[in-house]
Design a protein around this nucleic acid. Structure first.
Length: 300
DNA sequence: TGATACCAGAAGATTACGTCA
DNA sequence: CGTGACGTAATCTTCTGGTAT
């Protein structure tokens, strides 16, 4: 069972204006489409450069799994035979081929066909295939690791890559293909969750900001209705009118020692600097980097 | 050049299996 | 030992882009 780390998913806070602090990065693997991918969806994911996936395949720990499953009668992780590979190379395998093209939920029919395929692929004799066809294979850690590495490299595979990877891992190309499909789905799901959380925080921040501004407006209205009271009050902390340039500035600060005649431009700049910053930033507490909302729906 | 059919591949939804608490 | 939750491999359906006619 893969954990988040296994999926290469990591989160850290990010603030668009300052990427060094509160940095949030969704370290999902790149969903950049390969040259063969028709997918039009843009992706904000980081493309993590890794070593070539065609590197030598490390020794697997398949033995344990093999023993376990063999005791049950079928070795689901069994390396496909040459005929399997040749069959796949001939282009027999496709998402909608053979089994998937069967309509409806004709379980028995499917099982028969599936078993036939499995028998063909794995060289299992009639005596051995007493189990249902949907015998689920559990990928070994090594296989998963290699697939992950490959996914980092490119989240889609062209037929040649698929073939090579399958051969390297001792899997059927169809299995590699399925793994990549599911992996993309998991990545997207994770991204959606993160986006959702991000928008939630945006909403919360905006609500809070709105509440604060409403309160401020109310206070200003109150002051406007009672000029005497207004005259006695210290200026509001948030808004101060500059008598010279008639610009709204932040609360007055002790004037620095120096000439009283200040360059208006410098004065203005000073005001600008004095202007009270946003009480909080919309993105400050956001758990995800800012993304255009359109990116949430890449297909539209 | 536009219309049509066909195919391959991807996404999305769902099912089914294995594992674990 | 039974059971439910969870992760994920596998399947099915739909959509889309490319290509041939």
């Amino acid at each position: 069972m893969l954990e988040n780390q296994d999926l290469g998913l990591s989160l850290s806070l990010s603030f668009p204006e300052n990427k060094t602090t509160n940095s949030l990065q969704l370290n999902l693997f790149s969903s950049l489409a390969s040259s063969t991918s028709p997918s039009p969806s843009p992706s904000p994911f980081n493309l993590l450069q890794k070593t070539c996936w065609t590197d030598s395949f490390p020794s697997s720990d398949r033995n344990l799994e093999t023993c376990r499953t063999f005791l049950k009668g079928i070795d689901v992780n069994r390396i496909p035979t040459i005929t399997d590979t040749e069959e796949e190379e001939a282009g027999v395998s496709s998402p909608n081929s053979t089994i998937s093209s069967l309509s409806g939920n004709k379980r028995n029919e499917r099982e028969i066909n599936c078993e036939e395929e499995l028998d063909c692929c794995r060289g299992i004799s009639d005596e051995e295939d007493g189990e249902t066809c949907r015998k689920k294979l559990r990928l070994t850690k090594d296989q998963s690791a290699v697939l992950e590495e490959s996914f980092k490299e490119h989240n889609t595979l062209n037929p040649k890559q698929k073939q090579a990877l399958a051969k390297r891992l001792g899997l059927r190309p169809r299995q590699v293909e399925v793994w990549f499909q599911n992996r993309r789905a998991r990545t997207k799901l994770k991204q959606t969750e993160v986006d959702c959380e991000f928008l939630k925080r945006c909403c919360e921040n905006l609500t809070e900001e709105n509440r604060r501004l409403q309160k401020e407006v109310q206070e200003l209205r109150t002051l406007k209705l009672s000029p005497q009271f207004y005259m006695q009050m210290t200026p509001p902390t948030t808004l101060t009118m500059c008598p010279s340039c008639e610009q709204v500035a932040g609360p007055p600060t002790p004037s620095p020692p120096g000439p009283t005649n200040v360059d208006p431009r410098a004065h203005q700049m000073g005001l600008a600097q004095q202007q009270r910053p946003m009480p909080f930033n919309l993105w400050a507490t956001s758990p995800v980097p800012h993304r255009p909302i359109s990116a949430l729906n890449p297909r539209s």
